[in-house]
């Protein structure tokens, strides 16, 4: 009996010891900043960059329409990353349905945030010829209309090609919202300033991929450096693929490219 009691006490002691060890280790993890965890670099050579702008790189974003499954993970990741207010979208996914009579049906309920788990009821399934999904985000134009029209210079283009918004300068006149041909901008009701996708500039600066690229389970969203000939984006854009940009006639020269873009997509 004494032996049994001793065995239980031993177990208790070990249990309490383990709990204490766990608590201390957990607390330490909370105290140590995330950067110190040394998350592996996702964009090669980014952590060697210094200075305010990333001069050696030329970034491109590629969306592969032939891969997107409309799961909405990218939208969820984006909403979580930026706490985007409901009803406004930094990125969204559109569903295209084309029937045998060449009618095009497009929708994007809640910006595709909930994924597309139910087929459209208003299009008879037997008549559906084709379906595909089109993720949308900031086109990061080389000649951005939003930068051109901003009266106070709050929307600006960095030397490395990112179009960003200075929340401390923006007056929220909404001129940029009107000027963007792609409707990627909105007025954030919390900050009362213009807001849009930044291709996760804060993550890219730390060598991490944009949040939506990071979570995409099928690699429909790709991001990388065009000056790196080994990068996936370089290879895709320099190999024979059907590649296009949205609304090329606008003359904005987007840095967002689409693989397999269909003529129905606007």
């Amino acid at each position: 009996m004494k032996d049994i009691q001793a065995e239980i006490n031993k177990g208790r002691r070990a249990f309490i010891k383990k709990v204490l060890e766990g608590t201390i280790a957990g607390s330490l993890l909370l105290v140590i900043p995330a950067g110190a965890m040394d998350i592996p670099e996702q964009i090669t050579g980014m952590r060697e960059e210094d200075g305010p702008f990333i001069k050696k790189k030329k970034f491109a974003f590629i969306v592969d329409i032939t891969r997107c499954i409309g799961c909405g993970s990218c939208c969820v990741a984006d909403k979580n990353e930026y706490n985007v207010p409901d009803g406004h979208y930094r990125t969204w996914v559109e569903r295209y349905v084309i029937d045998y009579d060449d009618n095009v049906y497009v929708d994007s309920p809640n910006g595709g945030l909930d994924g597309y788990q139910v087929p459209r009821e208003d299009v008879p399934e037997a008549n559906v010829r084709d379906t595909f999904f089109v993720p949308k985000l900031c086109n990061m134009c080389e000649k951005p209309s939003c930068v051109q029209v901003c009266p106070v210079g709050a929307t600006y283009q960095t030397d490395d090609g990112f179009v960003l918004i200075d929340q401390k300068r923006c007056v929220a006149c909404s001129y940029c919202v009107q000027a963007c041909p792609y409707s990627v901008r909105f007025i954030n009701p919390v900050t009362k300033t213009a807001d849009k996708c930044t291709w996760c500039y804060h993550r890219v600066r730390k060598g991490l991929l944009p949040a939506c690229v990071n979570v995409c389970p099928v690699q429909a969203r790709l991001f990388g450096d065009l000056n790196d000939r080994e990068s996936q984006v370089y290879r895709i854009l320099h190999e024979p693929h059907v590649i296009s940009v949205l609304k090329p006639g606008m003359g904005n020269k987007p840095s967002l490219h689409y693989v397999g873009l269909r003529r129905e997509v606007v």
Binding site: G87, S174, S183, V184
Partner: peptide, 24 residues
């Protein structure tokens, strides 16, 4: 959440999600 832009209602076809607000 009520923003600075006022909310419009979809009339016909597909409008971009951010176009459901009238900013001016």
């Amino acid at each position: 959440m009520r923003g600075l832009a006022e909310t419009a209602t979809a009339a016909a076809g597909y409008a971009f999600p951010n176009d459901l607000h009238i900013h001016w």
